[in-house]
Structures are given as C-alpha cells and as structure tokens.
Design a protein around this nucleic acid. Structure first.
Lengths: 345, 345
DNA sequence: TTTATTTTTGTAATCGATTACATTATTGAT
DNA sequence: ATCAATAATGTAATCGATTACAAAAATAAA
C-alpha cells in the first residue's frame, strides 16, 4: 500500500485506495459535510493507511493563502515579548494558523530582508511589535500586501490598528505613586529616544510632575535603552550627582533597567528603597521575586497578544469587514518593596 | 505596467516585460551566472518596475522544499530559550532559512498538532529543544521526514544528533564548588523528574557528593520544575526542615528556581549567602544582576543554538553527508555573591 | 569559411491540491 | 410511478515557478 517511487503519498494515491476521485478526497478533508458518510469513512481510512499528509505548498498555491502569520519583534531575547507571543500563539493555534517569528533588530532588518518576509506568498498577515520599522518598507510593497496590526509598539501616524496600553497614563500612575509617597525630587530613566513607548512614558512622567507642581532638571532625566546594562549605567549617573541634589526617587521606563539600576546601586552601598525609591514598568515575571521586589506598572501582555492576534485573523479572513472594536487594556500599579515613603534621614 | 486583474505580478508578467521567457526569468533569479549580463539586467529592471516578488508556495511546490526550519521548544516564556533561539536565527537567516517557532507545552502538543507541524511539506527540518516529545510522534510519520536535530534537551537513546552541554559535569562543578567552600550538608533542588536535564544534574550532584564522601538524605532532595514558582516552594520546604539538620548549601538545577528560592527565603528573614549558599545552573542574563548576584554554571546557549542550526542545515542540504563533527560546549562555574564559605555561626 | 564546442534561451511538462462545472445518484412530492 | 429538487461525485483546468530537453546563438578551433 505504498505510494510509488518512494515518495510521499499524494491525494491521488488516497483517491485510488478509497476508490473515489481526488476531488472527493479533497472535499472529505476540507468540507466533511459535503461528502456522504460512507465515502468519508473510506477516505479517512485510506488516509490513515497510507500515512497521507497534505502538501501545504500545493494547497497554499492553489488557495492563495498560507495559514501563517508573522510576528516581528525587536528583540527575541527580551523576556518582555515572550508573554505577548504566548498570547498570540494561543489564538493563532486555536484558529489554525502557524506563527513565523522574526527578530527585527538582530540581525538588523533591511529592506530586502523585510520584503522577503513581509510577502503575501509567505504569510497571510503580520503582527508587528516594533515601531521603528521605516514606514517606507511597508509603502514600497506592490500588489496585495499581507494584513497587519501593531502590538505594544506602533508607528505614530500610521492608520494600521495598534494594540497597546496607554503609556502616558501608565507613566503618570507610576509617578503619582512616588509623589504620593512624599517624594519631591523625582528623576526618570528613559527608554531609547526614538521609541514611541519611551516618548509617551516621558510625557506621562512630566505631566504627573506638572500636575503636582514639580519640575525635573535635565540631569535627572537619564537616557537608557530598556536593557539591564543601561540600568547599570543609569546607576552610575545617579551616583555621580551631587549628594544633596539627587532625586530621592526614580521612575524607570522598564523593569529591566530598574533591575540593573538596583543591582548596581546595591554594589555601591545604596539601599533601595531606604536611600532611593524605584518604580519600574511592565511587571515582568521576575519583578515579584527580585530583592527588593519591584514596584511597577503591570501591563497585560498576554491579553495584548491575544487581542492583536484576534484582530489580525479577523482582517485576514475579511479584509473589508469592520475592524473589531478597540479595547482598552487596564493598567495597574503594583506596589512592592522598591518604593517607600520619603524620609529625611 | 500593472499585472492584469489587480493581482500580484507573476513571473509571466516579468518575462513579457523583459521580452524573455519565464525560464530565463527564473534562471536570472536562481542562477544569475547562467544568463547573459544583458538579459539579467533587463530582467532585474522588469522585476523592479513591476514590483514582482516570487510566489513562495509555487516555488516550494516545484522545488520540494520550503526554506523553513521549525524550532520546537518547551516554553516560549522561558528566557532560557531566547538566547538559543537567537543563535539559531543568526545561522538560519545567514543561510537563507526562515524559522517557524512552536511551543510544545502550551498548548500541549498532541500527535495531530505535531504531525501538522513536523511535516515535510511545511518545513525542511526541525530543531527540537524538548526531550519529552513521545518518540512515537516521530515514528508514526510516513514517507520522507524532515531533517532533525536536538538542542539542549534530547530523547535518551535516540540516534538523532543532539547539541547540549555535559549536564553531569556541570552539576559536579556546581557541587564541587560548594564542597570547596567547606559545606558538608548540601541539598539539591531538582528539575521535573521526567526531564533528561534534571536526571543528569541529579546524577552529577550525587557523583560529586560521593566523590567527597558525602551523602544526601531524601528530604534534602527537593522536587522542582525549573520555574521561579517551584523555587518559592523549595524555600518553604527548606524552612520546614529541622533547623539543626538543614543543608547549609543548595544546588539548584536552574537559575529560575534559585531566584524564587532566594526571594522567598529573603521574605522569611533568611540571608543568602550568610545563612545558606546557593548555586544555580544556566547563567541566564539576570544572574549577574540579582541581589545577591547568583553563582551558577554558565552554558553557552547561543553557541549551542548556532551549532544545532548549522548541523541541521548541513543535514537538510545533504541527508547522506557525514554529520558535522561533534563539538563540546565548555562550561564555566561563575562564582558570585550567592555562595560563601561555610561558617558555624 | 566551416565545423565543433560552449553558452544562452525557449518550449512545455511538472509539482499536488482545489474547485468550477458537469454528471449521476438519491430523495421527496405528487 | 414520474418528475423535480437536492445531494454526491467526477472531470479537468488551474494556481505560479522550475527544469529537462531542445533549439538557437555565440565563440573557438581548424
């Protein structure tokens, strides 16, 4: 009962075995109802016996779709994204899509590489988690483009649906928390300057200060890039400031930076939160288990991933359907051990 | 200069535009040397002008390959894997392969889902990072199977090439370190019992103890599952032990568990390393920045990923070629702040 | 110049599943 | 029992690129 030539069994082989036409086999697989029970059983049995599996390339070619969605993220190694990915995967696999994952920063993606990935013959749609892809990469595409949504990050001004939290509000919550604890000298460790998230978080930070009649001198605004390492550098910067004029609290635009910061301060004998209060952003898994546990803004990463995936699949299935309703993702300030009331000492 | 019907431009359209046959266009793309410079330029120009991109499904169908490799990992959310992934991606993209990533535990993969993924018409090969896939899933396949290698984990007894460190040696290094610090009462927080890594690490742990004439009562062998949460539970277990008969040092089979452990102990007033020394395993990025910084066994995750990808691609290109030479991955004990010499107090 | 060799190009079959359309079988209504 | 309507199945064209084979063009050798 082998397929001839030592090759894989084809739909032809199954058809012959079950004494039906290839069309019937195809229908038995794709539209079971359109086939009588008797033949369906025969087909299924032939499939089982032959070990037939569908040839995806052939199906994709004929159907003009791939059942694959691309997830483009800035940094695979950053644990922040893995939860979002998990949300995407949950939905995608439930809906019968595979996901293709690519890292847009490493190796840095150029137009050619992008064009090769973001191609309707490879993918049905894409979820883009990187707001720094040049808009021109998308515009350059001819013909039918894959469906697309943004998640977490987005390109400002783009019309494409984007699923993300309100970063300004989040930053305000974090800063308000520090103010409420009695801090008046509050600094900020920012993300990379060309990043939308960084910008919104700086904005929220400043809005909160303004609301409370506080200001922030330039050297309390520390430039980082979301990595642990840049948190370490931020600590160096803080240590270099005049002891009397240092902030007594810092809002970090990411948990990772907060960890680097706290660790480096600790090496230098500075205690968090006694000497300095720190709030992070994201509530990565580890935040609850660091020492001290990190106060931070929780964002529902997994739900963001799920929402983005749902919206994308919706768009893939019917490009002209009205988009799914926007949803708001709730933020939550989680107060843990890294923040404490201001004390004069 | 549009393709007709509002559809994507096809190779036909390019051919017409460049006044050559489709065969020539195809050759200009796949074997530039087999085409005269003049026609090549004409073709390239036509491609540029039409915005043509190749239809991958058609190419895959005809060529009988997909240019895609699957990476099957147990848990996307675990930061351990992201570095390995990065290594895989570096090589894969350099060699012109895309990677398809799937999570084997969530949602738990069943035979049908596995068969759907691990299918020669979808992928050219797979890198499997999960040693708990039932062997039967692989055996059940008919016909030509995708190429495959294991990385990090593997199925004991399988003939398939596997790229991983010597876990027994690593566990011995970790345990030796504790012994060298003067500890005599040493416990172990193990990984999930059905996991090859756990088993080898337990073995190495016990071998080291034996070498030094030490033993380990059963209630110093704590069952975990590699997660932070199970580290927290291990701490509870340790705390529940009779104060006089507790281990003074613990070897954790993963850094994640060590973090959970240290954090929970800290909550209960136990200081690491003063009251208890702890070594982890893996040297995840955060290990250098936790408080205290974690002593651990460094494994070159990225290089493992690269080696696995290289070997797989080698196999894909020529299934019968002799396999690439095995390589040893060096381990390193990184001694940081979580371990200290035994003191009687 | 003529012939042999090599390079370049074209024609048309092919990969394997899907589906429009045509045909046959079945069911139900009268 | 007859006809209409519906269900089930089959035939063959099709998706778009690749490539075996054949033909034509260019180059080298005589």
């Amino acid at each position: 009962m082998k397929a001839k030539k030592g090759n894989l069994p084809r739909i032809q082989d199954v058809a012959k075995m079950a004494n039906v036409s290839t069309a019937t086999v195809s229908r038995a697989l794709s539209f079971p109802d359109r086939v009588s029970e008797k033949t369906r059983d025969a087909v299924l049995q032939a499939i089982e016996k032959s070990g037939y599996t569908i040839n995806q390339s052939a199906r994709n070619l004929r159907r003009g779709g791939t059942g694959t969605i691309l997830v483009l993220l800035p940094n695979l190694a950053n644990s922040f994204f893995s939860r979002v990915l998990k949300g995407i995967e949950t939905i995608a696999s439930k809906e019968g899509f595979s996901i293709l994952i690519a890292d847009s920063q490493f190796p840095p993606i150029d137009e050619a590489a992008f064009g090769n990935l973001f191609n309707i013959s490879r993918i049905d749609g894409a979820i883009v988690l990187d707001g720094n892809i040049p808009q021109s990469f998308f515009d350059r595409q001819n013909g039918r483009k894959p469906a697309m949504v943004f998640a977490c990050e987005w390109i400002p001004g783009s019309k494409t649906a984007a699923f993300h939290i309100d970063n300004i509000a989040g930053a305000m919550m974090a800063t308000d928390h520090l103010v409420a604890l009695g801090h008046r000298k509050i600094g900020h460790v920012a993300g990379p300057p060309n990043n939308v998230l960084s910008r919104d978080r700086v904005t929220g930070f400043l809005q909160s200060l303004q609301k409370h009649g506080l200001g922030c001198p330039d050297d309390w605004k520390i430039q980082g890039d979301f990595t642990i390492e840049s948190g370490v550098q931020a600590a160096q910067h803080w240590l270099s400031l005049n002891q009397e004029e240092r902030p007594t609290a810092l809002f970090c635009a990411s948990d990772e930076m907060a960890f680097g910061l706290i660790s480096e301060l600790n090496q230098n004998g500075i205690k968090v939160p006694q000497d300095l209060s720190i709030v992070g952003f994201d509530d990565v898994e580890f935040a609850a288990h660091s020492i001290p546990a990190l106060s931070t803004i929780h964002q529902p990463r997994r739900r963001i991933g799920e929402a983005a995936a749902r919206a994308l699949i919706h768009k893939i299935r019917d490009a002209d359907a009205p988009p799914l309703p926007e949803m708001a993702f709730e933020l939550e300030l989680i107060s843990r051990g890294s923040t404490a009331p201001f004390s004069n000492r």
